[in-house]
Amino acid sequence: MKIIDLYIIKKYLGTFGFMLGLLTIIVLVIDVQAKAPRIESNGFKVSEFLVNFYPYWIINLIITFMSILVFISVIFFTSKIANNTEIVAIISSGASFHRFARPYLMTSGFIALIALLINHFVLPLSNIKKNELEPYTYNAVSRAEFTGNSEVSTQLSKTEYIFIKSYNKKEKRGSGFIYQKFDKNKKLIYQLNANDFYWDKDKKYFSLNNYFEKTINKDDTEKLNNGNTLNKSFGHPPEELFPDVLLGQNKTTPELIKFINREKEKGNANLNSYLNELYQRTSMPVSVIILTILGLSLSSEKKRGGLGLNLALGIALAFVFVFSFEVLKVVSENKSLPPLLAMWFPNLIFGPIALYLYFKRANQ
Rank of each mutant, 00 (worst) to 15 (best):
Y205D: 08
F197I: 02
S233N: 09
K218D: 13
W199K: 05
N209T: 00
F234E: 10
K201E: 12
K223F: 10
D196H: 10
I216T: 08
S207C: 01
N209D: 04
L224G: 08
E222N: 14
D219H: 03
F206T: 01
L224S: 12
K201H: 06
N209H: 07
N210G: 03
N228F: 03
K201I: 03
K204G: 00
T221C: 06
I216F: 03
L208I: 05
K201T: 04
G227V: 04
D220H: 10
D202W: 03
K203Q: 08
K218Q: 12
N217R: 13
D196Y: 08
E213D: 14
E222V: 07
L224I: 11
G227N: 07
K203V: 00
N209A: 01
D200A: 03
S207H: 04
E213Q: 15
E213L: 13
D220W: 09
L224T: 13
K204T: 00
N225P: 03
N225H: 15
N225G: 13
K201P: 01
K218C: 04
D220N: 11
F206G: 03
D220S: 08
T229I: 04
N231K: 11
F234Y: 11
Y198V: 00
K214D: 11
L230Y: 14
K232M: 12
K203N: 06
W199Y: 12
S233G: 05
T229E: 10
D219W: 04
T215H: 15
Y205I: 00
E213C: 08
L224D: 12
D220M: 06
N225M: 15
